[in-house]
Design a binder for these strands. Structure first.
Lengths: 253, 253
DNA sequence: CTTGACTCTGCACGATATTGCACGAAAATT
DNA sequence: AATTTTCGTGCAATATCGTGCAGAGTCAAG
């Protein structure tokens, strides 16, 4: 087995299980613990995971900081969410992905707007249960705890039967050449499917996600209709996205 | 279990419950008290929590305030949930209905119990996303906002394909002759279907629900295996249930 | 084809960390 | 004041870590 393969596998297991035990993992793939520990040390040095006694945890440790992630940059996310919510027209069928940006979006939907929201995020469903005029449809399936969205074949089948006007996609990275990416292969696959069923695919990206790339590609830039991001374009990155035939909406805080 | 995971878990429980008892927590996750106390000491040294005799409280005083408010009175409600959670055996497939009683139940599931929870309540799904060893399967469908559960034909189809060991049913009334009732016809129909797919049907009923009846019958008493309720039987109502070949679990506060 | 530099891997071993137990001290409860 | 519970520390057993080292494989220059 190649070193690079092994390292990729480590990251995948880490994304899937939210942790990795050095001893049991080494037995599982039939490699000595020493080698695994070496890999873990190197990946930790690159900041790709968090090394702990006994194994490793994801770099941005899983659900533990879901709440704190929500707190960080909340004001920026809520103004992005407000801008995104304005793109929903009366009567449309909208797919809302999981993630903190989309929860903000859900909170910003005008109270008199009548529309249908499809989601595979229980958090979004709970949030919208309090909205007076939005019809909510929940996609079932196995719960992927890290992102708190449903995945798997049950989800895929349900999604395949629904055509939507707009898909607000959550990503962990958005790169001009690589496109939209996320940290889990199965999640990427589900997002790809949703995108195919949608007329428009819109990505809300805070500035730290611009130019970043995670292991798994969801779709290339060509599949993305609109990017909603913060207005302070320091690095000129936005020009790269604009030239990719994508509408870029810049929002000031 | 990794040390870092354990510490993360401690902080999450602290955030959720507003407090942590060293002794009961150590039993819950099957680790010696010494280790837990050591963890608490270390986390306190980092300023991540406040160490107190018997356990720990959240670091910030604002949260501690919220915590004590929540702790008072919640203990009465959660004791029913705790009793219910004890009925779940390792490896079982359990259907958790919506409702506040079942959310309490979800919170009381021992942290080391491995089981699968099926639910049509997004709130339950979100709650269990934080549980380290429970597999969660979400039933999709149209969201019935009043109860925050999914209903409709999509839900019904998904439910019809699943056989479960136990169904913890939420009701608004439980009457010795009329049986279990609720306020919405469609919800009643979905609950009936779930009950048919389950080996046991268990109802958690606070005392104000006993003897009460809502417009729509879900199932007659003969379909209910167990009733979990509060221990203070003033009116002799429980005898009526006991004579209906139902196991009655009385819980003292 | 050979040689030498280089990398990767597994093993050995001393260093370090973690855990549970024992026991006396401190705190809470009666 | 007596009793029970909880705490903290020392200690020993165990698990995990990091490093040095040697053998195997790779690759390119000779």
């Amino acid at each position: 087995m190649l070193t690079a393969e092994r390292k990729a596998l480590i990251q995948r297991v880490l994304q899937r299980d939210g942790r990795l035990i050095a001893k049991s993992f080494s037995q599982e793939i039939g490699i000595s613990e020493d080698t695994i520990r070496r890999d873990l040390r190197e990946l930790a040095a690159e900041g790709l995971l968090q090394r702990v006694h006994g194994g490793a945890l994801p770099a941005s440790s899983a659900e533990a900081d879901f709440a704190s992630r929500q707190a960080i940059g909340a004001s920026a996310k809520s103004s992005l969410g407000r801008a995104a919510a304005r793109l929903i027209a009366r009567g449309q069928i909208v797919f809302l992905d999981g993630g903190t940006s989309n929860i903000q979006l859900a909170r910003q939907i005008p109270l008199d707007l009548r529309a249908t929201v499809i989601t595979h995020s229980p958090s979004i469903a709970v949030e919208l249960a309090g909205h007076p005029s939005i019809e909510v449809e929940m996609i079932g399936g196995r719960l992927f705890k890290h992102s708190i969205v449903t995945v798997g074949s049950t989800s895929a089948e349900a999604i395949a039967r629904i055509q939507t006007d707009i898909f607000f996609m959550g990503v962990t990275g958005l790169h001009p050449e690589i496109g939209a990416t996320t940290g889990d292969a199965e999640e990427a696959s589900i997002k790809r499917l949703i995108s195919r069923q949608a007329g428009e695919t819109i990505v809300i990206a805070t500035k730290e996600k611009l130019g970043a790339a995670s292991p798994y590609q969801i779709v290339p830039m060509s599949e993305i209709t609109t990017v909603i991001t913060e207005g302070q374009d320091e690095s000129g990155q936005l020009d790269q996205f604009k030239s990719a035939a994508v509408t870029v909406v810049e929002v000031d805080d």
